[in-house]
Write a protein that binds this DNA or RNA. Structure first.
Lengths: 218, 218
DNA sequence: ATTTATTTTTAGATTTGTCTAAAATATATT
DNA sequence: AATATATTTTAGACAAATCTAAAAATAAAT
């Protein structure tokens, strides 16, 4: 089946939301898509008719197996294009999201297979997010949240979940990127903030809000 | 100013048609775009309002200077992406047109500048068509139509103007590609067909219709 | 120079995706 | 449990891009 750009964007957003919450509700999807609840309802009906969604009026909704497949091909395209933009074209990793949002809707599947091969079959995009393979299988890594790291232990940043410009600006300020080594020095119970040490940087303190979005592996 | 995918497609088609004819008329644009004359008229009004077109009802139309600029950025993107698809991803040159039709509408100008640089600033796409630079300047080559080549003389194929699948199928059959050396053996006055010799191939005869679409340089 | 044929434009309808405002349903509070 | 609040859906409107059918303008043919 074929999907419009708009449909693909809805499917992708639902996929991301249901990763966290299981069932998704109308308002949170509206917020995610920066649109109105009424528009969401309209689209939900369309997607339900296309067997992409399990949808019960007023109850909530989630993707069918088929819907997940569609979502994963869009996610796959997005992340492969991000990899291309950073590794081949030399973009900064915090500048590629919007361009990849457009590129992910190019339809040719032959294109994406050839792109994957050209890039050397990468498993993770420049933000550390796993790239689904052509069957929708997602590579797993043993990563944990920075807040869960034992005191005194060091680990490498493997992914960053919030990719807003604001967040990326912060990361740049702290000189944190994928692969950066971070040692957790101290946890402050008062506000959950963390004192950390980044190689070749003086120790510093980051808020719990930042830390929650940073994942690391040993 | 920003243009929709549909507007960009109209602008590009008008550009190509006015290269041949100066003024463009509604029906030929409708044929080129595979749509109806009424739809064309609707879009002409929109483009005229945006100062992209010089348009006089019932008379014909052509792009303004501004319109030409827009057309050239789309053509530039199309041809750079075609080059990428063939030279980097390994597509056959007759398979890339439809994908480039989608890629040419990705909006970021930073992307296209970086792509150009990544590709090594190519001047011609895989079909031999010149790639406009970021100012819209088109590289010139001294090429001539195959039908204008003197008898007995050999020359290299530099571009092919008709890029329909039918034409490309023919070219494949005759083993003609950009860079192929062709010697003109004989011209048949009866139907304008040409006997030609391609290196390492037995001599063969091609129709005038094919020959008119093939350009060569010495 | 009329008539005929072709081309182009208008008028009105359709589809997709969006919106606002109001109604319907579900959830929370007293 | 009844009422208040929040969420979700419906109803109806709008813009973009397209279409068909009919009208208007131009070009061609007798």
């Amino acid at each position: 089946m074929n999907f419009s750009v708009s449909e693909e964007n809805y499917i992708k957003s639902i996929y991301h939301l249901q990763q966290d919450t299981g069932l998704v509700n109308t308002n949170s999807l509206a917020a995610e898509m920066q649109t109105k609840a009424a528009s969401v309802t309209d689209m939900l009906k369309k997607l339900a008719a296309k067997k992409i969604l399990q949808y019960e009026k007023y109850k909530g909704f989630k993707l069918t197996e088929n819907g997940k497949k569609v979502a994963l091909t869009v996610v796959r395209k997005h992340r492969l294009w991000e990899y291309f933009l950073v590794e081949k074209l030399g973009f900064e990793w915090d500048k590629v999201h919007d361009i990849a949002e457009e590129l992910e809707h190019i339809s040719s599947s032959e294109l994406i297979e050839k792109l994957q091969h050209f890039l050397g079959n990468p498993s993770f995009d420049p933000h550390g997010d796993p790239i689904p393979d052509s069957n929708g299988k997602i590579p797993r890594i043993s990563q944990q949240n920075l807040t869960a790291l034992p005191q005194g232990k060091a680990a490498l940043v493997s992914s960053v979940t919030n990719q807003s410009p604001q967040m990326l600006e912060m990361l740049k300020h702290y000189k944190i990127a994928i692969g950066t080594s971070i040692r957790l020095l101290k946890k402050f119970d008062f506000d959950g903030s963390l004192e950390i040490k980044i190689s070749k940087q003086p120790a510093c303190v980051i808020s719990e809000q930042i830390a929650k979005n940073i994942f690391v592996q040993l």
